[in-house]
Design a binder for these strands. Structure first.
Lengths: 189, 189
DNA sequence: TCCATTTCTTAAACTACATTAAGTTTTTTG
DNA sequence: CAAAAAACTTAATGTAGTTTAAGAAATGGA
């Protein structure tokens, strides 16, 4: 049921079978159809989501009405609107399945309890959040140091399979330009 | 000596006097003169830095030779090049004092030991990293949703004192445009 | 398998911001 | 307190990327 998550946790800390059994009742596992939403603007984000299989994306709608993708989560990544999740306030974001996705969720009303019952998980989440922070530092540098074309070519060389996996308009907004411009870049060579 | 840090930690968890005494020998406290460096490109980042007083900034030099500020840390914020710090690899960043600054540092060779001796701090750092992650999500949205002028006006309305505190060229690169353009915006009104 | 929807492409006109360069003001330091 | 260095301003010129709009291709559902 939750083996994808247990395997991931065990990459960072040792979680015994007994501890897994304590954790299990606090989790929920379910499928999300392609294009279905786990969160929409105005709603309060109910859970922190772990992707067991598939792909979720976090985006918002800008003043001009365009979707701006700010994050993707593939296998073994957590995704949520952290502010909305932690403080149970209305979100300005959408979380949508970019593909048919298998999700494991920890809901807000059990989040603190989880750390209380399994303090070991403080370490797991600290390490995950450190990875997130590394990724953010890399991403900001990347956004500030290259032109749109360089960003695309660089991203494409690092994650060629992923570029094939999602529609170009999602990728374009994630990389900070328009789908038309991405089309232009590709046509070049 | 380390009271600024102890106070900060106690906002998130309860750290007893005894525990403070365990922590103390793993910390270092020192002053950094304005414009002095805690890290330069090519060096390995030795520590994670907590600002007790003053202001540090993290920046890199882009292809055109311009400084790009990617992060500021004022009182009660931690700052480091996390990848370089965790894996002890050469950094592409500089950490410099934007003002005369009082720093409390935890060095790499004591970082794991700190969590081993004081597992409570796993929680403190998880909570800090959550705040960081919230800040990153906010920042990315901010960068993607507004024009340069809007970003400046918005930032200025949120943090007017901070805008006065640092040179405009640092702020301009942090907000993602040139000092000349910032000058132009200001002249407008 | 066909129609509807979604996604991608092309190209011309436009604009927000960068670049360059020179001059001015402010801050730092001996 | 004078000189040097650092920070800021102004303005002309240039360009990377956007906008708009229309058509082509791919995908998905009944």
């Amino acid at each position: 049921m939750y083996s994808a998550l247990y395997n991931h946790i065990n990459r960072f800390i040792d979680l015994s079978t007994g501890e897994q059994e304590i954790l299990a009742p606090m989790l929920k596992s379910f499928s999300v159809k392609k294009k279905a939403f786990l969160l929409t603007e105005g709603q309060t984000c109910r859970a922190n989501y772990f992707v067991a299989k598939g792909c979720l994306r976090l985006y918002f709608i800008d003043i001009k009405g365009a979707e701006q993708t700010t994050q993707f989560a593939i296998e073994n990544w957590w995704i949520t609107d952290l502010t909305s999740f932690l403080f149970q306030t209305p979100s300005e974001f959408y979380i949508q399945a970019a593909e048919a996705t298998e999700v494991i969720a920890i809901e807000h009303h059990l989040y603190d309890e989880m750390f209380h019952k399994l303090p070991k998980l403080e370490r797991y989440f600290r390490l995950i959040l450190q990875k997130n922070h590394q990724a953010s530092q890399r991403r900001i540098k990347f956004l500030y140091s290259q032109t749109a074309e360089e960003r695309f070519r660089h991203f494409n060389s690092l994650f060629p399979e992923f570029v094939q996996r999602v529609p170009q308009y999602m990728l374009a907004s994630y990389l900070g330009f328009t789908p038309e411009f991405l089309s232009k870049i590709r046509a070049k060579k």
